[in-house]
């Protein structure tokens, strides 16, 4: 696989939500591709379909029509269990809030995806501890989520997402619940992971501060892509 080949691609992807007789076209024949190492921001007003597209890229939701290909494999028709296994093996997630399991410590949350993959305790420790140190949480590894700030919780979620070295990480409004300072430092972290580690990152946001950090901005409106431009990050 060459570096300009798409790690994730959608073709004529549509998602229609039916509520009684009303149909909501959340995505209309979207063609989107993301290459390895990219940092893409999905922008657009509320209801434009950003989350819907992220869920499709993350095999969380089956499309109404069209296809999604990840790492050369079509994932559109995977069953629920197969999709779950696929996500575990290939995709990292950071959500807006309630990312962590409240009964687990920061460390246990961070290693959870590795644990699900069946990685041994020693290996998990060798992978997760340096990452926690790197995001500045080495001293807080034994804290439960309620003992961490929102920004610290999101960092733990980032460690959990990147620990298994996924093909790409999807983040849906990861900073929406944070104050501007925590928000900025989380973005610093994501930017650094993208630049120094080559992490492929697709995030959705309508926050200008966030969008400004991305190297490519894809704009959505009413379920269609209306803009796609590279930008040099500030």
């Amino acid at each position: 696989m060459t570096s300009d080949e798409a790690i994730v691609r959608t073709e004529k992807l549509s998602r229609i939500y039916r509520q009684g007789t009303v149909e909501v076209h959340a995505l209309r024949a979207v063609d989107f591709a993301c290459r390895r190492g990219e940092f893409v921001a999905l922008a657009g007003p509320s209801g434009s379909g950003k989350s819907t597209l992220l869920n499709q890229l993350g095999t969380l939701d089956p499309p109404t029509s069209g296809r999604v290909t990840i790492a050369g494999r079509e994932v559109t028709r995977l069953g629920r269990a197969a999709a779950a296994r696929f996500r575990l093996a290939h995709i990292g997630f950071v959500f807006q809030a309630f990312n962590l399991l409240p009964v687990l410590t920061a460390y246990e949350n961070a290693e959870y995806t590795l644990l699900l993959q069946g990685v041994s305790a020693a290996k998990r420790r060798a992978i997760v501890l340096p990452l926690l140190e790197r995001v500045g949480l080495g001293a807080m590894q034994h804290r439960r989520p309620h003992e961490l700030s929102g920004g610290q919780q999101q960092r733990v979620a980032v460690v959990r997402a990147i620990a298994p070295k996924p093909a790409f990480v999807l983040a849906d409004e990861p900073t929406a619940n944070l104050d501007s300072q925590s928000s900025a430092s989380l973005l610093d972290l994501l930017e650094d992971l993208n630049r120094s580690d080559g992490l492929t990152l697709v995030l959705a946001s309508h926050d200008a501060q966030v969008i400004a950090r991305a190297r490519r901005v894809v704009r959505l409106r009413d379920g269609s892509i209306v803009g796609d431009e590279e930008q040099s990050p500030t």
């Binding site: 629920r80 779950a84 696929f86 996500r87 575990l88 959500f95 309630f98 990312n99 959870y112 995806t113």
Partner: peptide
């Protein structure tokens, strides 16, 4: 739901 998103199978 979060567990499922992270890759925990229904079983």
């Amino acid at each position: 739901g979060l567990l499922s998103a992270l890759g925990v199978t229904p079983a």
